[in-house]
């Protein structure tokens, strides 16, 4: 009995094994690689990606896709910068406005997809153009954020100093937010009725409806959630860059989708986890780190390796799924 449970967890295990393997490879190949600073940078540089990928994980498990994530992030960052710098709004109030906007944006997309039954690809493609255009409408250029609350309070006072390594490491609040989002999403997906319904809808929407689940509400829910995480990710990105740029985050939704797939979530829905997604983002980040340590490789190699990984993982997960089910059924017939 334990066998097929292990088998269904294999995609995530494979992803985690790859993450560990990559780190070990870096540690062996380069001096100074295995340090607290490298891990810290990995988390800091990818916090916004992880948050965006968490929302995408919900969407993909439900059998959908959201192409608007990158544009929504850019819009959120631009709006936050404009409110704080031009509008004189306190950063916390600005963040609340941005989160509300992200939520509303996701909600509208979700309603169009679930109630009017428009394919998610088309709705979120339209959403992507709208959000990108809206970002430029808010402010056509990049704008630095110099508000003291952001520059000083958030990035310095609230940062945590951990006595790790020779000089210790500083963990900015973005990483804490990322961890909170991860934990919240894990509980929601794994242990909440909403999360279980997301899996059911993604696996077989017809069956889910016959079983009495509110399929439409679940779908609206995942897109709303993804709009919200995009807004959070946009805020983290603004904080990380200390600016809001309407031209930023172009194509980031595709990086996010790649990370989710590498993390073991099935593109056709019904399976996946946020732990895997986290590992997926970290794998992409590690590849980038390794290439920068190598020094003589162009950064395009990151893309080439990422492309190969997505392909390999798609094949791997497909294979594992088929084998697992066959093994289980055979055992059943004999047992």
């Amino acid at each position: 009995m334990k066998l097929h449970r292990l088998v269904s967890a294999t995609p995530v295990l494979a992803t985690c094994a790859l993450l560990v393997g990559l780190f070990a490879f870096g540690a062996i190949s380069y001096p100074n690689f295995a340090s607290a600073a490298v891990v810290r940078n990995l988390l800091v540089d990818n916090a916004f990606l992880v948050v965006a990928a968490v929302g995408m994980t919900f969407v993909i498990i439900s059998g959908g896709i959201d192409l608007s994530v990158g544009a929504a992030m850019a819009f959120s960052a631009t709006l936050a910068a404009a409110l704080i710098e031009a509008g004189g709004v306190h950063p916390l109030a600005a963040a609340a406005v941005v989160l509300a906007a992200g939520l509303a944006f996701g909600l509208v997309q979700g309603v169009l997809i679930a109630v009017l039954d428009v394919p998610p690809f088309m709705v979120t493609l339209a959403g992507m153009f709208l959000a990108r255009g809206a970002a430029f409408a808010v402010h056509p250029q990049s704008r630095g954020i110099t508000h003291p609350f952001v520059a000083t309070t958030l990035n310095e006072t609230l940062a945590m100093h951990l006595p790790l390594g020779a000089r210790g490491v500083t963990i900015p609040p973005t990483v804490v937010v990322m961890l909170l989002v991860l934990i919240g999403a894990w509980v929601l997906l794994r242990h909440a009725r909403f999360g279980r319904a997301v899996y059911a809808v993604g696996d077989d929407a017809c069956a889910a409806r016959l079983m009495g689940l509110a399929v439409r509400r679940v779908k609206v829910g995942v897109y709303t959630l993804c709009g919200l995480t995009s807004a959070v990710a946009g805020l983290l990105f603004a904080l990380y860059q200390q600016s809001g740029d309407p031209a930023s985050c172009k194509g980031m939704e595709l990086d996010v989708i790649a990370a989710v797939i590498i993390g073991g979530t099935l593109l056709r829905g019904g399976a996946g986890s946020v732990i895997g997604t986290f590992a997926g983002v970290m794998i992409l980040g590690l590849i980038q780190t390794i290439i920068s340590f190598q020094g003589d490789l162009s950064s395009w190699w990151t893309r080439i390796v990422a492309g190969g990984l997505v392909l390999v993982f798609l094949l791997l997960h497909q294979g594992i799924g088929v084998v697992a089910r066959r093994v289980g059924r055979t055992a059943d017939r004999q047992g």
């Binding site: 269904s8 899996y199 059911a200 696996d203 077989d204 889910a208 009495g212």
Partner: peptide, 16 residues
């Protein structure tokens, strides 16, 4: 009409 990827127990209780 059940959900193949969820456990037997979840399929029995799903939605309630």
């Amino acid at each position: 009409g059940l959900i193949p990827r969820l456990s037997v127990a979840e399929n029995i209780c799903l939605g309630r």
